[in-house]
């Protein structure tokens, strides 16, 4: 088996930030804050966060902040809860949470909780359990979880639980590994994992591992490196990660590297991107691959960052 091409991935991530001339990077412009979170967290896991100009990133982030307290995906774009979490996560990485008005960001998130406990993504009312996770994760990082109705939020998430033990976007929605990460993560952060059917969900999740060693996100779908994160973090949170073969999954992720130019792709020999590079590295971190910083499965931030948030006076 090959090894993780750490240096090349670092170089690749740094180059993505600069590259703005091809079609793909323009298409992704509206979610640049997500990109920053993926790239920077991957750099931190690889031990190379210090190669980044912190002030430059932070001042750009702040230019995406709206009066409402929400962040847009890039300068000029509308605020949305999706980008607000990424912004808060990046600030947490740099230990720079003091640059934002915490109450204002909190109010923005609190204003998005609906009567039934669910969360809208923004003022236009799309409801999804992804947004429940985001709200809970974000407020927890800001030490403001008590500002929302946690009990109702948990109840809504449970209303999205399916016969296979997994969770969907809304009640009745099909289980999907990404959605399961969101729901299990939200339940983990609110101390409610006793409400998860761990053995049933664990079986569904471990059956995501296909012959090649990779993980898919739903039954009878192709494996994809991003599920190394969604499936693995969920299995880790419910303590069932030993139900898959770690060796085979490590091999699959390593096989998806571009050993020439750096970066990790969804499947071997596909085009790389920063999203899959992050999820590949994060997956390897959960698999305790040597040389990587450990990542927290619920907050999707390095463990030392989470510990700094909760165990520092």
């Amino acid at each position: 088996m090959g090894e993780l091409a750490t240096e090349k991935h670092v170089r690749y991530i740094l180059s993505v930030e600069k590259r703005k001339d091809n079609f793909e990077s323009v298409v992704m412009e509206h979610l640049r804050i997500n990109g920053a979170y993926w790239g920077l967290t991957a750099l931190d896991l690889l031990g190379k966060l210090d190669t980044v100009d912190v002030d430059e990133v932070v001042s750009w982030l702040m230019s995406c902040l709206h009066e409402s307290g929400g962040f847009g995906g890039n300068v000029g774009h509308d605020p949305h809860i999706l980008y607000t979490l990424s912004a808060v996560q990046v600030l947490a990485l740099f230990d720079k949470l003091d640059v934002i008005d915490v109450d204002k960001v909190t109010n923005y998130i609190v204003s998005l909780q609906n009567e039934d406990g669910s969360f809208s993504g923004d003022m236009w009312g799309e409801v999804d359990t992804r947004f429940s996770y985001i709200a809970i994760c974000c407020l927890s990082i800001l030490h403001r979880l008590e500002k929302i109705d946690v009990e109702k939020a948990v109840k809504y998430i449970l209303s999205c639980k399916n016969m296979d033990g997994g969770f969907g976007c809304t009640p009745g929605g099909e289980s999907h590994a990404g959605q399961i990460f969101c729901c299990v993560g939200a339940l983990a952060i609110t101390g409610s994992l006793d409400l998860v059917d761990k053995d049933l969900l664990g079986w569904w999740l471990c059956e995501r591992q296909v012959k090649s060693g990779g993980l898919n996100g739903r039954p009878e779908k192709l494996p994809d490196v991003c599920y190394s994160w969604w499936v693995l973090s969920s299995l880790t949170m419910i303590d069932r990660v030993h139900w898959i073969s770690k060796e085979k999954l490590i091999k699959f992720i390593i096989d998806c590297q571009d050993t020439e130019n750096g970066g990790i792709s969804d499947r071997p020999d596909d085009a790389v991107d920063v999203f899959h590079t992050f999820f590949g590295v994060a997956g390897l971190s959960l698999l305790e691959y040597p040389g990587l910083k450990p990542i927290d499965p619920a907050y999707a931030l390095p463990v030392d960052v989470v510990n700094r948030i909760f165990f520092t006076k």
């Binding site: 927890s140 952060i189 619920a298 909760f310």
Partner: peptide
């Protein structure tokens, strides 16, 4: 011996808001 704690969220703890530090 492990960098990843698989019981972190199944045990009462400040990261899960079930325990005060």
């Amino acid at each position: 011996s492990h960098s990843i704690d698989t019981r972190r969220y199944l045990c009462s703890s400040p990261v899960a808001h079930t325990e005060e530090f």
